[in-house]
Simulated scan of single mutants.
Amino acid sequence: MSHFIYNGKMNGKLSSGKFKYYSESGKLDWLCDAISGSSNLKALPEGLYVASGFRVMKEKPFVLYGIGFGFDLIPQFKTDRTELMFHPDGNLPGTAGCIGGLFKDKQEVEASFIFLSKLFKKCSYVPVTVTYHK
């Protein structure tokens, strides 16, 4: 089954790591450096999620190099956290508990936008696993 994995290293409330997509065959098809949380807000909780609802975004926190997009991360466990997403980490460094993609240049953001938009046209949802290591 195709799926995303975010594996991060915690540093206080902030985590940094890789967000990866594996195809049905188990091949790594896409990855980006990513962060979750900020100095004020906790990182995304560990657990299983469903990714869905890919869309273009225009708000500054979701836009990097003039390109904004995101998709929802729906927890498959009980939590009081809401409005969780993956999106480019625009605006100030860190996220409000989402996973923020860190892209080195406009070409990386464009390539990710194209890959992810095609993926979500084929799949209405994709499983996501979030884990942390020391």
Rank of each mutant, 00 (worst) to 15 (best):
W30P: 02
L92K: 12
L41T: 12
D105V: 07
R81E: 09
V109I: 13
F4A: 01
A96H: 06
A43P: 01
S23H: 13
Y132V: 08
Y125P: 01
K121N: 13
D29C: 12
G12P: 04
M10C: 04
V56W: 13
G68T: 04
A51P: 03
R81I: 05
S52N: 12
G47R: 07
C32L: 06
K122T: 11
M57S: 12
H133W: 04
S38D: 05
K134P: 12
V109P: 00
S117M: 11
D33E: 14
A111G: 02
A34M: 06
L41P: 03
F62R: 04
G26H: 03
N91Y: 08
S23I: 06
D105T: 15
T95F: 11
S52D: 09
K60V: 04
P45I: 05
Y49E: 06
E24R: 12
N7M: 07
I99C: 06
K9F: 13
I99Q: 00
A51H: 03
E24G: 05
R55Y: 04
K121W: 08
C123G: 03
H87G: 01
N7W: 04
P75Y: 00
K104Q: 11
T95Q: 01
T82F: 09
I35S: 03
L64T: 12
S39P: 04
I5R: 15
L44E: 00
R55S: 10
M85N: 05
G68S: 02
K121P: 02
A43Q: 10
K27C: 10
E108Y: 09
F54V: 03
I74G: 05
F77I: 15
T131R: 10
Y6M: 02
L64D: 08
D89T: 09
R55A: 10
S2W: 08
I5F: 04
P75N: 12
N11Y: 09
D105C: 12
T129F: 11
G17S: 13
S38P: 08
L48I: 15
P75M: 05
N40L: 14
V130L: 04
F69C: 02
S39F: 07
S15W: 04
E59Q: 12
K118D: 14
F103Y: 14
S39R: 09
G17P: 00
Y22F: 12
P75K: 10
K27M: 10
E59H: 08
R55P: 00
G37M: 05
S38I: 00
F4E: 02
F54K: 03
L31V: 11
F113D: 00
V50L: 14
V63F: 02
F4K: 04
T79C: 08
Y125Q: 12
Y6F: 15
P127H: 06
N11S: 14
D72W: 09
F71E: 00
I114R: 11
D89Q: 14
V126Y: 00
V50D: 08
P127A: 01
M10W: 08
D33S: 05
Y21K: 01
G97M: 00
M1E: 13
K13T: 10
G26V: 06
I99G: 03
F62L: 09
V50W: 06
V109Y: 02
K118C: 10
A111P: 03
G17W: 00
